[in-house]
Each structure stands twice: as C-alpha cells, then as structure tokens.
Nucleic acid binder design. Sequence first.
DNA 1: GAGGCTACTTAAACCGGTTTAGTGTGCCGG
DNA 2: CCGGCACACTAAACCGGTTTAAGTAGCCTC
Lengths: 400, 400
Amino acid sequence: MQWRKTGSLVKQNEADAGAVAPTPAGSRASAPPATAAAPRASAPRRAAAQHPTISDVAHAAGVSKGLVSLTLNDRPGVAQQTRDRINAAAEQLGWRPNPGARGLTMRRAYSLGFVLRRDPITFEVDPFFAAFVAGVEQVLSARGQVLVISMVHDQEAEIGTYRRLHTDNRVDGFLITDLLGHDPRIDLVSELGSAAVTLGRPSTPSPFPAITRDYDRGIRDLVGHLVSLGHHRIAHVAGDGRMQHAHGRMERYVQVARDLGIEPLIEPSDFSPEAGAKATRRLLDRPEPPTAIVYANDPMAVAGIAVAHERGLQLPADLSIAGMDGADLGRYVYPTLTTLDNDPLGWGRAAATTLLALIDDGSAPDLTLPPAALIRRNSTAAPRTIRSTRTTSTTSNKET
Amino acid sequence: MQWRKTGSLVKQNEADAGAVAPTPAGSRASAPPATAAAPRASAPRRAAAQHPTISDVAHAAGVSKGLVSLTLNDRPGVAQQTRDRINAAAEQLGWRPNPGARGLTMRRAYSLGFVLRRDPITFEVDPFFAAFVAGVEQVLSARGQVLVISMVHDQEAEIGTYRRLHTDNRVDGFLITDLLGHDPRIDLVSELGSAAVTLGRPSTPSPFPAITRDYDRGIRDLVGHLVSLGHHRIAHVAGDGRMQHAHGRMERYVQVARDLGIEPLIEPSDFSPEAGAKATRRLLDRPEPPTAIVYANDPMAVAGIAVAHERGLQLPADLSIAGMDGADLGRYVYPTLTTLDNDPLGWGRAAATTLLALIDDGSAPDLTLPPAALIRRNSTAAPRTIRSTRTTSTTSNKET
DNA sequence: GAGGCTACTTAAACCGGTTTAGTGTGCCGG
DNA sequence: CCGGCACACTAAACCGGTTTAAGTAGCCTC
C-alpha cells in the first residue's frame, strides 16, 4: 500500500481505502463516485512531495507563469536579470516540465513509436533490436523523450497500432524497420500526417528520411575473403524476399559474385532460424553442395551451423559459414561466426536523431552510416583440399 | 514533406524549408522564432483532419462537454436517452479520448514502464523478453494503454530513468524483472510513490504484488529425467547469483539432486552466453566431468553446446545438456535443446493485468502461474556406456 | 509636457479532458 | 400555492503548460 502515498488519490479523499476506483477502461463502472462524504476535514490541500509546477517556479521567482515559460524555452523578450532569477528558482525547486501538459498545447507527445510485427508463436526478436533500442534510448533520454514499443503479431493489429499511437497523440513519429518492398506503412504514416524515418531506403517514393548503410563494400570483402580462401561455390541464403534489405543484400551478393567470376547461388529464406536451417539442408542436399554459405543475418547462420553439425560436417573445414548483421551472438557459437559488423547502436542513434530533427525542423536529410566491416572469426577457412575433381558443369570459372 | 500537412508546423510558417533549425541537442537556442514574417495569408485556421474532441461530441449531441465526459465514463446522473444520443455522436465522429489531456487531470499516464539494464557492449537481450513484451502489449492495447521501454547500461542511468519516467508522469507503474537479491528498485519505486509488479518474489519485504511460477516441479522433472536416463553426475550452471530467480533455480536443483540421491554440483555463472561457455569449460576440465549439465537459462545452454562441439564431444551421447526458461531458440540448435517451458507470453499478460489492477484499484494480489513443464528434445540422452570404471573419488554414489 | 518608442511583464485564453457547484424543471405533499 | 426534493443538465474551474493581446515603465524627442 505504501505506493499509494501520492498519485491521483491524494485529492480524492483521505479516509477510505479502495472503493473509489474511478472505473477503468471500457468497464461498466457501477461504483458511485463515493464522494459527497466529508471531504473538507483538515486535509492539507496539497500533500507535499508533489512535483513543482511552473506556477511554483513563477511564485518563487516573483513573476507570472508566462514569463517563466518564455525563459525556460529560451525565448527572447525577457530581461537577463529576470531570466537568471527564474532559472535559479527552477533549478532550486528541481522543476521539470510536464510533457503531458506541454504536449497538450504543443500537440506533441515527446515520444517516438516503434512497432514490431512478429510471428505469434515465435516472437523471437533479432538480436539487432536490443542494441538498436539502446541506441535510440541514448538520444531520447538526453532530450527528455521516451520510446513507446509495441509488439504485434498480424498486419491488422499493426495498422491499428500505428493509427492508435498517432491519433491518441502517443508519439510524434515512427521508427520503421524491416522495410518491405512496397511498404504500406509508409503511405499509412504519411496519410496519418505523422513523421517517420526508415531503416533502409524504400523502393517506392517516400516522404521520410532514410538511414542506410553501405553493405556493398562489406559484402564484397566477405565474398572476396571466401574466394581468396579458395572457395568457388559460395551460396547465399537470402532473407525474407519481401523485405527491402534482404533484397539489397542478395543483389549485392549476386553482383559481387559475378564480379569475382563465380556463379551466384541463391537459396531463398526469410531471416528466421527455422527457414535458415531448411535452406541449409536444401543447399547441402544438392549434387554439388557449396563449400561456403553466406547468410543474410546471423540467426540464420547460427541455425546453419547446427544443421552442419547435425550432418556430421567438420566446421569450417567441410563448410565455411558467414553471417551478416553482426551480432554478439556469433561470438558464442562454435565455431565463432564470421560476419559483417552492423553497429546496431549506431543505427539507433542515427535513426532517433534524424527523426527528432524531422519532427522539430520539418525536414531532415537522408543519412548514410559508415560501411559495414568484415569481422573474421573461425567459421570461415580454406575448403578441405579439392572435393570433386571434375568441377565444371553449370559453374563457369571465368577466372581463378 | 507530405507529412508536414498537420502537426506543429502548420502555424509556424508556410514558405521556407530548412534553414530554421532551432539548433538541436543541448543547444543555446539562439535562432529567432523566425515568425514575424507573413503568417496570416489564407491559411485555414484548423487544417481539417484533426481528431474530434470532446467538445465536438458535445456540440454534435447538443449537450455540454461535462455531460459527455460523465456519459463516456459510465458515470451515473445522465438520462438514458441523452446517454444514447451522446454515445451515438461519439461513435459516429470516431471520438477517442486524448490520453494526454485526460492524464493531466487524472494524474495518470495510461502507460507502463519497463526498464532494462544491460551490458553496454553486449546489449544482448534474453529471448524471454520479446515474448514477454508481446504479452504485456496484448493487455495494454486492449485498454488503450501503452508500454514505454527503456534500455540502459548502468545503475546510475537505471535509477535516473525510473525517477524520470515517474516524475515526468510518463508511466503509472513499472514492470520489474531480473529481480536482485536485495533489489534497490523496490525501495526506489516505492519511495517515488509509483506502482510496480515484480517477476518473482523479492527476498526483502515488498509492497508490490509478485508474479511467480512454480519451477520446483519442472526442475524435479528435468533432473529426474536425466537420472532416469542413467546420469549421476549432473551439474548445474547457475545464473547470476545476485538475481533472485538464479538463486531459486539453484536451490531447487540442489534440493532435487539431494532428494534423488545424487551429489549436487554447482558451477556459478551469470546467465550470459559468455559466462555460460566459461562455466562449461571449467566443468569439462574437472577430473571427473559431469555427464549432464543443466543450465539456468537457454542462452547459456546454447553456448554450452558450442563448447562441447569445440571439444569434439558427441552430443548428446558424450554429454547431455538442458536449459531452462524455454525459448524457441532451442529448437534451432544442434542438437535441439531440452528445456523447461516458461510461457513468457503468459508472464507478460499476467504482469500487465496485475499491475493495471494495482493502479486502478489500489491493490492487487500476488499471482502464481502454472508450473513450468519439461520439454524433451534431443540434447538429452543416456550417457555413453560407462565412461570410467573406477568412479569413486569425491563423488559419492549413494545409490545406483 | 505630450507623444512615441522600446523593453519588459502580466493577464487571460487555450489545449482536451474531469469534476463540482449551481440552475432549472417537474412532481409531490401539505 | 408554495416548499422541498430529485433529477438532468450547464457553466465554470482546474490540471500544467504555451501563447498573445494588452499594459506599464522608462527613455528619448521635439
């Protein structure tokens, strides 16, 4: 009960315990207001603790609250001396603006929204997101803002959530990840009149700034690394083809493979470990299985490692494996996973900063993060001697 | 730019694009408000779309807004006929209460807070949390509420975040996970006068309801399962000893081991894959290594599997491995991981429901979830024949 | 000494809700 | 015919901020 000390109950009444309950949500609320009793006992009008308001500051500094507001928002038109006095008073009282009240007039929520759609049974979340959220948080907390996260499991709920967060003025903008090819969320958010930032560049015209990272160089380094180890048959297990970044990574892989003179081999998947495992089985079942597999993200690569073990393969001698979207995860599997560093913390910071700029200034430029760098670990090595002598077939080794 | 249609910019100015930029971050804000220009062109005072307010509803129904408020909160004192008219009007206009405005008078945020403290470099998040958050979300969205998540990396930031979320009236209560032995957050939140619910029962007196799950039966089943397979040397890699649930699981393991007549063997760890891997190495380096290892959570078990592979052990023949806190993760490693089901979605729903009850009603009872159930997969099997003939030494096989 | 600036400051309205004091109105009893 | 009492409803204050029209002072000018 201790926690009841403050909060909305303070002014309600002092006696009485439960019973009051202003009836929650969509309830029937039969409970009579219960007031009418004896309210004006000797209850001190305001029960201490309560955080200071702008009026308290105004009173302490001997000015009107309007002036306090002007001062604390660094608006011109206040004498320096007065300004100092007000700032001192605010400081001394430990005043902080109430975002709710401020948001009421400013039509702002001072918070950002992050809606994640996930499979209802799995709900597994890519390791990318934890660090991403931490990065966002770093920027937001420095500005007194907050992150609202929603995890939903179907598109209907997703759309409803975007709508609700916006119309209830819960957020000022959205962080859009897992961008789809033609992503309906962009039109949705734009139609709502809210702001957003996308992780990756949408294929359709978008009014929102995009944060991107050059993966070209990283993929080039990665595939090049494998080729230089002596691999020719390097497969790529792609991410969910409906997602923009899955597509991008695949295209870059194809391009790089061609450039390096090897035949691209794509196995579709969807970023989930489950599908990654299946894709791996399909690859290993081929008459001429690849000697190296590059996965579009780390969780699939980890699942791939498990499949390889299951088949009794020696890693990395029998099969080299590499991930992307470098997560710490890859440091604790055996063998440790070669991957592309993705600095999710940096993504988070960049996305939050850009989105806030858009909200505050009305516009913000696209942002390109430093290229993803190759992290070599132990899951990649030279292929075990020569597996089959007569390679040829479909694969055309233009160079070597 | 399309999104500029509404929002705070409407009244700012129409011309101009960038340039204004009121200086980001911790700025001095010298930029003049930039107004003064030609504001009063022909801009329609209110740019359509804007969501209906309670006044709109009142006007449409031909009553005062006070009456609308009473009606929509199911308060008595409104004629049924009027009530119907108001409800119809609200429905027709698609009115939804603005939580910010409502919270201003009600001193509520209509949101819950979830603060996670994580290692600054790893920021890996236990797979438990994704589903947990989804569960919380299900309850909240049905009530028009919202979840604020904050990810911090040290205790100072953590305390600051709790304070800030509360004093800024950002949340009405907190979900406290990863409970420590003597957890300072309980006193902190209680001192702030906020509400909370704990996942697990704190060892110190707590004014907040606790959600718990019986692990005793699950651990009994799990260890019993291993014993019935023929294991005698079953080690337990414990979680972070400062955390309440790590302690509980360890104690139960010890109890169960004793009951089953085997000697408990505890290897300390901290729930992280890294430490789990190290603990596994220490265990395998023992003169008489265990034939089975039970980990306090799945991520450590996965790391343990990697270590075993690294040492060339055949799993599960050479070593049986089991996790706890059943995550989907365990289905995609090789061998698939035996674990205890933990239904994180259920935890989330229970925690949110209880916390909201506490906030609304002023009190809420503790809640015990159904016991964790054993999920048998392929990482546990009978030990490979008899490893060493002359067992003896420290280990005393009271029975066999 | 009135008029006109400029520089500060205040008072009041407003954001979108909730709560409460007070106003009608209708009906009953005396 | 009037007082009293429910009942239904309105008006206004309030929550904690921001914004702006209207003052007030001080100073300069002519």
